[in-house]
Design a protein around this nucleic acid. Structure first.
Lengths: 229, 229
DNA sequence: TAGTGGTCTAGACCACTAA
DNA sequence: TAGTGGTCTAGACCACTAA
């Protein structure tokens, strides 16, 4: 057991008072100069502690006014979204991908009009359908995918390795499976599905738009807040 | 347009090279001393830039070895989870809560055996059922809730204001609505629902466990990664 | 064992803004 | 206008670990 750094001890001590309710929202937090005097440290060390708390959204800092406990508007949870192939494998299951359709067309679904590759297929875990996906990829942004063998490797896996993105947005919802999705997943008509619509960008340019339909009960997303694993 | 701080410019310049693919995973990133020489700044300024990148998971730093572009294992999206009342109101809809059941019992569903308050009710937007929730609250951790008027204020809203937590976990999935849930929401039997199971802790002690069933199509969770709003 | 990151110091100047 | 945060400097000592 090694003592944590001083800046971390200062940070944790303030965090504890906020989370315990001792310092409610709006309550003033000691400033950098005061903390430096109190802990006998340099102002930079106190700054590091307060900056980390501000970054985490626990305090608000205003020039001239000071530092205050933030009002809890919303909590930002961290949602880890890995490649489906990697996640199924990490779970100890056998992953497989079955390409069912691959067409090329002109579309404006990705912002501007342009050539897009449309891919449909099914992700399987231990041979059982886990999710159906329909994906559009902007060929102007990712020309190399035209030559990729998407029967062997899922497009998401391929893109992760070949086309970095800078922005992503995931919309998670639920719906009854449309008939073609139910058929692809081997489900009764209108079975409940967990759906994810994901868009990614490189800079301002849209790269891909994918809609995935997960078999209800076979998948869940876990979002966490806090220090625990 | 004001020039961003030097440490931020250094950080952004490295980030750009990583996201463009110019520096692939595993590629070495200039160390603190090298950046300081290159930019003519103090080592602390370079440290700030590299520490921020490490915190964001874009680089890995190893003593003696150096700093390297991180391999993209998974992407941590930020999922904002606000209080349902606040979120419905922010959307411009009228929020209401209808308490349907409130009982007290002994249960070990929250870790250890103890008295729990069990609350059931429906969240409404513009008078239309949006979600059903069933919640357990550990009375030993939140004794004040016994006196709260949970017909007037939803338990989640009350807890946000009165019982801070330090850890939270959300599991998002989908399922067919159980019959009592379908009834409470005014849905046909086995309608698809988006479900959230949320546990919160204060330190090591479980505070609450709630399961919410959202009407499919009426709600979605949005998780983002990147600089965009 | 030598080089990297991790942390800290004791100053400094400035921007911003509430009083 | 005075006090707070924002950022930076030019050092320092140390822990760790790959070579």
């Amino acid at each position: 057991m090694k003592a944590p750094p001083l800046s971390e001890r200062i940070r944790a001590s303030i965090e504890a008072r906020i989370l315990s309710g001792e310092w409610p929202p709006g309550h003033p937090v000691p400033g950098e100069a005061e903390l430096a005097a109190q802990y006998g440290c340099a102002r930079m060390t106190a700054n590091k502690a307060l900056s980390a708390l501000a970054h985490a959204g626990l305090v608000e800092r205003r020039r001239r006014a000071g530092t205050f406990v933030a009002r809890p508007r919303s909590q930002s949870m961290v949602l880890e979204i890995a490649d489906l192939a990697a996640e199924v494998t990490a779970r100890g299951d056998a992953y497989a991908w079955r390409l069912t359709s691959r067409t090329q067309a002109r579309s404006d679904a990705l912002g501007s009009l342009g050539d897009v590759l449309e891919i449909e297929g099914v992700h399987l875990a231990n041979g059982v359908p886990l999710a159906f996906e329909r994906r559009l990829v902007k060929l102007a942004e990712v020309p190399a995918i035209a030559a990729a063998d998407l029967a062997q490797v899922a497009p998401g896996t391929w893109l992760l390795a070949h086309a970095p993105w800078t922005e992503a947005e995931n919309r998670i919802s639920a719906q009854a499976a449309p008939s073609e999705v139910a058929k692809a997943l081997g489900l009764p008509k209108a079975s409940p599905c967990l759906t994810v619509e994901r868009r990614t960008w490189r800079g301002d340019a849209p790269v891909t738009l994918v809609r995935q339909y997960y078999v209800a009960g076979a998948w869940e997303f876990v979002a966490r807040f806090g220090a625990k694993g």
